[in-house]
Design a protein around this nucleic acid. Sequence first.
DNA 1: GTCTATAGCATGATAGAC
DNA 2: GTCTATCATGCTATAGAC
Lengths: 230, 230
Amino acid sequence: MSRVSEESGTAAKETTTERIPAALRREQILAAASRVFGERGYSGATTDQVAQAAGISQPYVVRMFGTKENLFLEVVARALDKLITTFRVVLAEPQPAGDDDADSLVARLGAAYVDLIEDRGILLSLMQAFITGHDPVIGAKAREGFLQIYRMLRDEAGFPPEIIRDFLANGMLFNTLLAIRLPDIFEDDEAAEELMRCAFRGKLDVVLDATGSHASHAMSAPTGTAGTHS
Amino acid sequence: MSRVSEESGTAAKETTTERIPAALRREQILAAASRVFGERGYSGATTDQVAQAAGISQPYVVRMFGTKENLFLEVVARALDKLITTFRVVLAEPQPAGDDDADSLVARLGAAYVDLIEDRGILLSLMQAFITGHDPVIGAKAREGFLQIYRMLRDEAGFPPEIIRDFLANGMLFNTLLAIRLPDIFEDDEAAEELMRCAFRGKLDVVLDATGSHASHAMSAPTGTAGTHS
DNA sequence: GTCTATAGCATGATAGAC
DNA sequence: GTCTATCATGCTATAGAC
């Protein structure tokens, strides 16, 4: 498989030098930055890599956001916002008639979380921010963001601490599995496959799909059993 | 050369220019590197920061390990080894007469994991390696290491996938909370405190102690409000 | 065994043209 | 709105002295 020039929505380098409204370009840069930072982390990513991913020049990236740090902070803020918003949507949905206990809600939130993988940058950028907790500026935002999620699950979803802990724990495991790219060695390693089937529950296909790992693996339990443990 | 000041055990800059056996110096460098890489990550850390933490010159660090990458890989390999060894010790211990089911074993492994925080570098370096999964070399080792842990819990401890998943999930949450330095804002934020009490269970004091967060907080209420699930 | 000096490249950011 | 050129810094790695 040779990847030749042209970009296709999700991840590639642009080539045109069109004049585009600043607001739009800004979005393009943020989207590219989300992917790059998600992959390489704050220190590991360069403004030039972001620029290339967005199809513009490096100085323009800096010009738009002032500093690399600002760009990262904006990426993280967006990711957090998207996550919070996604959860709120689920919380606003009417409880499915059958079992409307906390367990069911946790399951739906979990499923929504997994679906966020559609844009890998969101989950990974957040994770990268958490891991950069030592940084005075980024670290502060990371802590704040993590606690914001915690409070939301407690105050808006009404979960008790233990439920939240388990939910967050599964989220962190999910992020980590994505980071080490476990989906990439699916099938090459029996342990990897077993762990993934178990960790991603009925969402395995969605994950493999989103991560570009050989798509056809269909075997999803219809309604997906993306719940939190038994 | 007149460098003054003094170092003190765990985390400080050495100052003496003594001639020390290579093997020992190697250990000192690895210890320093473990801390530095654990904090800043592979890209974020510099060989000079490691050198200063170890109290020697930057070129000497490189001389000893060839490249920064080699040094990081060695740090990670050691961390993984320590973790595996720690778990094996627990598995070898005789089951406490009372309840010797899987739940009890999981609890003891979890406690042993938390105790590893004594050397923050171990847990954080591993986490940093996981998050660097995009790197061809480091990523490969990270995947391999993660799967090694999984296989051990499955083949040596005899746990079923779901138990392992939950165990690993809690481990990743623990690592993340350490990374964002939640222990540092313990008491400054009610949500942070609540989450920590719940996540660290009866080990809160051990954690606060190891992370240097105002030590005296003793209240490891055996089964108090921090409730340990079922 | 350990240091000083330094080469050489990568990177973030600035200046200014178009 | 976007680029080219470029400065300045920081960093890994090498050379070689003591």
